[in-house]
Design a protein around this nucleic acid. Structure first.
Length: 910
RNA sequence: GCCCAGUUGGCGGAAUUGGUAGACGCGCUGGUCUCAAACACCAGUGAGAAAUCGUGCCGGUUCGACUCCGGCACUGGGUACCA
């Protein structure tokens, strides 16, 4: 009887569901372990084989931890607010909620087929009111908090008020405005990325190369009143705490760059003939004597005041032009140097020299002070600007290498200072210290730290998101009380912005608090709900709190988090930010959401091509196509096996193909192939459903792991799956009589209770050892190899001993849970294998008494010889020298040296 | 430009601390079974006739380098006038 995966897998999936096998309690005598996947956005396209890669890995790990005696939390849910459902609603009028529900049902069906061990009783959906009630609640906590630099944490806004002089005497409106400058959720005029086509604001990370990440529409800069979150208050902690978590170095590095800490000096220049000063920020105060001009951003507040009348016209034109340039144009024209002279000068604080003030759009208004001291000889951008406008480039650092200052600036922080008064002769690092101390002494400026990180814009002019729980009382923004939550998403007639450009929520009838005060019409961004969902899983149905204190104290934070690296500077930064904030408020005991993070690679599709000759209906095989004039066409990868086209299937694929003719090579039609992104239009999408149908869930799970290291991106290739199929059948056969065996019965289960032999035990324990180190090192591909080796060796030994096969079923259960359950049942167990005990490794079975030494000459292996492991080096050396082969390779010479590494190698140096 | 990761057979990929390069699987070749095919099973499979040569390229350290060091090239990802 061959293994019938369809029947067996269906049966166990049903069993798990009925028995709630994976239900997890918030109390246990076992240690806890929290394994989390990044939850999916339920799109209409369904899952393709790339999606489950990370889920399979985390599921294996979760199941392994259960076998190892842990109380494992392994939940799943849906990030169900988002743009595609809304775009679909705009086009069809279909309510996003309906689309979302349908998609979720489809996702669930697909996920269930793969046999994941999720505790579905804890499912969350970010678009459900009982979930977003608490997203809104956290927003209110952010609104009610400020960041106290003295305690270095968030505190209730009430602790700020005593520190504000004359606060009580201000009007209510003035008080509100003043507090908004401190609140962690605040309303302000902000330069935003505005996308006219989408009718909404986008976050920096939603804009790629000047166009929207979704849809690819142009994005402009625009000043708007917007809700933002003061993530910059946490910049230093977000940076520092990266050191304490076990995340991949590339994600940490991406976050470090995104936060962009830079330490320098802020420094004031006196404007000649005026009372004003210009403050600049520099990381290179050592180059102060190399300053030849000062550049302001076009948006700088002093531009108007210090432009002289004769320069007024050109400056105004320049500023207007710069403002109107879209984000896209600015980025496309990075190399194009533009700027204009204001006509005014500042005084050099040490030399008293007159230094011209320029305006240039290479200086960003939003970073530092929006003004820079330009040192053309030692800064690439200043160099380009000075070259373009013919400005001076005084050299103040002498490089130790030859340098052509006419060609390039010298930006390195290495060399000796020259032409720099009190800094002369110092090394750059010394000079920086000295310059700061002199600047501080003379009260011209002080040491300062800047961050590249911007506050996170939190409002989106969209329908399908969490309503921001704010209303405006006489124009003053106020948050709802907790008992007024959730603020439900209102019904609207259309999902588009209004004709006056207001967000879709403005269309809702009677969307007013107490029928009087207008609510905020923006909704929250996609990342709001995902910034705290890991906490909700701990206590998913709590109606009184976002999660109970007991649940949070028990589960703490995520032990293993698996998901895509594309969230490096989005979700993964925001979830850290919210975690730190909730910790400041004493609501959770942890400062980081996840101890360990692994990024699974992307799975690309492999497209197949057929080659049509001209416009005929004739197709030529890959190898012969050069002899003809051909057009490559995508062909459905599901009718191609090992690059060989199924000609019948091809004829039935499309009507036009029915009469197709073929030029074959060796009787086959060979297709071309190329790795590309998986997409419908390229006919290269492989759905997990199809794989499960053809090969079984266990086979898909093992094959996805076998493909290569989890973190690696790789093209999907179904070719190798037969190897895994064969392996599963071989494994099954260990427990059953083969078809050619005499003892064939209806149930041909055939496991013996005789004691196992030493070689059998050695195979088992060798495998246990490797599997443990592979799983714990997240090397799932090699563990599959090791299972294959184990099954091959046991087959060779004709082993059917319970003593071996019972532990084997357990160690393979995380990978092939359906098969393992069936075997476990046949072995006579009535309980699920899920909570069996992982077999103990017994090293005594692995002890070797001899080793087959490679004997090498000058590092090159020539032959092998087996020796007892208890031989001493001296004995071994003697033995080796007596060998005939040794003498042969010595060619009569005397060895200079013989190196013997115990249990490894013998190397004879001639 | 800067930062990160990578480069090993026809293919996916293995190789504790430097110690037998190519595990495991696919594919391919030959064979057994069969009227035949499929399945299955057995044998072989880095290159080369061989000596030898082989882990992107050049150099170094070492008895010994895929592994360590210096330089370079290429591929993928992130980021970008951040002073």
């Amino acid at each position: 009887m061959e293994y019938n995966f369809r029947e067996v897998e269906k049966k166990w999936q049903q069993y798990w569901k009925e028995n709630k096998t994976f239900r997890t309690e918030n109390k246990s005598s076992k240690p806890k372990y929290y394994v989390l996947d990044m939850f999916p956005y339920p799109s209409g396209a369904g899952l393709h084989v790339g999606h489950p890669l990370g889920y399979i890995a985390s599921d294996i790990f979760a199941r392994y931890k259960r076998l190892k005696g842990f109380n494992v939390l392994h939940p799943m849910g849906y990030d169900s607010f988002g743009l595609p459902a809304e775009q679909y609603a705009i086009q069809t009028g279909q309510h996003p909620e309906i689309t979302t529900k349908t998609n979720i049902a489809r996702y669930r069906e697909q996920l269930d087929k793969i046999g994941f061990s999720f505790d579905w009783d804890r499912e969350v959906r970010t678009s459900n009111p009982d979930y977003y009630k608490w997203t809104q609640w956290i927003f209110i906590q952010l609104f009610n908090s400020w960041y106290n630099p003295e305690t270095d944490k968030a505190e209730n806004i009430s602790t700020l008020i005593p520190k504000l002089n004359g606060f009580k005497s201000l009007s209510e409106k003035e008080q509100s405005d003043l507090l908004l400058d401190y609140r962690l959720a605040f309303l302000s005029d902000t330069m935003v990325n505005w996308c006219p086509q989408l009718g909404t604001v986008l976050a920096n990370e939603e804009v790629k190369d000047g166009v929207s990440e979704r849809g690819g529409y142009p994005v402009e800069r625009k000043l708007m009143k917007q809700w933002s979150l003061r993530i910059t208050a946490y910049a230093d902690r977000l940076l520092k705490d990266l050191d304490g978590i076990d995340w991949t170095e590339s994600i940490k590095e991406a976050q470090r760059n995104w936060i962009g800490k830079s330490e320098g000096t802020s420094f004031k220049f006196q404007i000649s003939d005026f009372k004003f000063q210009i403050e600049v920020f520099t990381t290179r105060p050592d180059t102060i004597f190399g300053v030849s001009f000062v550049t302001l951003a076009p948006e700088h507040e002093l531009v108007e005041k210090l432009t002289t009348s004769e320069n007024k016209k050109v400056v105004e034109e320049y500023v207007t032009a710069a403002k109107n340039r879209s984000e896209r144009e600015r980025q496309a024209d990075v190399k194009k140097i533009t700027g204009v002279f204001t006509g005014s000068y500042v005084e050099h604080p040490f030399t008293g020299k007159q230094i011209p003030i320029w305006i240039g759009d290479y200086v960003l208004a939003g970073y530092g002070t929006g003004a820079v001291m330009a040192v053309p000889a030692h800064d690439t951008r200043d160099f380009a600007f000075a070259t373009h406008f013919g400005l001076e480039k005084p050299i103040v650092i002498l490089p130790s290498v030859d340098w052509d200052f006419a060609e390039n600036s010298y930006d390195e922080k290495l060399g000796k200072l020259v032409n720099s008064d009190f800094l002369n002769g110092l090394e750059v690092k010394e000079a920086i210290k000295k310059a700061i101390s002199v600047i501080e002494e003379k009260d011209l400026g002080k040491g300062k730290t800047n961050f590249r990180l911007r506050d996170a814009i939190f409002g989106r002019q969209r329908y399908w998101g969490e309503p921001i729980p704010v209303y405006y009382e006489n124009g003053i923004p106020k948050v709802l009380n907790e008992n007024e939550l959730p603020l439900l998403l209102p019904e609207v007639d259309k999902y588009l912005p209004t004709e006056t450009g207001e967000p879709p929520l403005a269309r809702a009838k009677d969307f007013k608090k107490d029928n009087k005060w207008e609510y905020e019409y923006s909704t929250m961004p996609g990342w709001a709900g995902s910034s705290w969902y890991f906490l909700r899983y701990m206590d998913a149905h709590n109606e009184k709190e976002f999660a109970s204190k007991e649940a949070i104290d028990y589960w703490q934070n995520v032990d293993l988090y698996i998901g895509g690296a594309e969230h490096a500077t989005g979700h993964l930064l925001y979830v850290r930010f919210w975690t730190k904030f909730l910790n400041d408020l004493g609501l959770i005991p942890v400062i980081e959401p996840a101890k360990k993070l692994i990024n699974q690679g992307m799975i690309q599709g492999v497209s197949s091509y057929v080659y049509r000759i001209g416009n005929s209906n004739k197709y030529v095989s890959l190898g012969l196509r050069k002899e003809y004039d051909t057009t490559p066409l995508h062909v459905d990868v599901n009718i191609v096996t090992n690059n060989v086209l199924d000609i019948e299937a091809f004829k039935n694929w499309r009507e036009d193909n029915a009469n197709a003719e073929f030029i074959l090579e060796d009787g086959k039609y060979i297709c071309g192939s190329e790795a590309e992104k998986m997409s419908k239009s390229k006919w290269n999408v492989v759905s997990p459903d199809l794989m499960v149908e053809q090969h079984g869930a266990d086979c898909l799970r093992i094959y996805e792991m076998f493909l290569g290291p989890l973190e690696l991106s790789k093209p999907w290739n179904t070719n190798g799956i037969t190897g895994v199929s064969n392996f599963i059948r071989k494994l099954w056969r260990l427990y059953h009589t083969c078809s050619n065996n005499q003892q064939l019965t209806t149930n041909n289960f055939f496991v013996s209770n005789e004691p196992a032999t030493k070689p059998e035990l050695k195979v088992l324990h060798k495998t246990i050892k490797k599997i443990i180190s592979d799983i714990e090192g997240f090397s799932f591909n090699t563990s599959v190899s090791n299972f294959m080796i184990c099954v091959n060796e046991l087959t060779e030994l004709k082993c059917n001993k319970r003593e071996i096969l019972e532990p084997l079923a357990i160690i393979i259960a995380p990978y092939a849970p359906h098969l393992a359950e069936e075997l476990w049942l046949q072995l006579g167990h009535n309980e699920s294998i899920t909570y069996a005990t992982f077999p103990e490794l017994k090293e005594e079975y692995l002890i070797e008494s001899a080793f087959n030494y490679p004997v090498s000459f000058n590092g090159k292996t020539r032959f092998f010889h087996e020796y007892d492991l208890f031989l001493t080096k001296e004995q071994l050396e003697k033995e080796v020298m007596t060998l005939e082969q040794t003498q042969k390779y010595l060619e009569g010479k005397t060895p200079k040296k013989i190196i013997i590494v115990h249990n490894k190698i013998v190397n004879i140096v001639i």
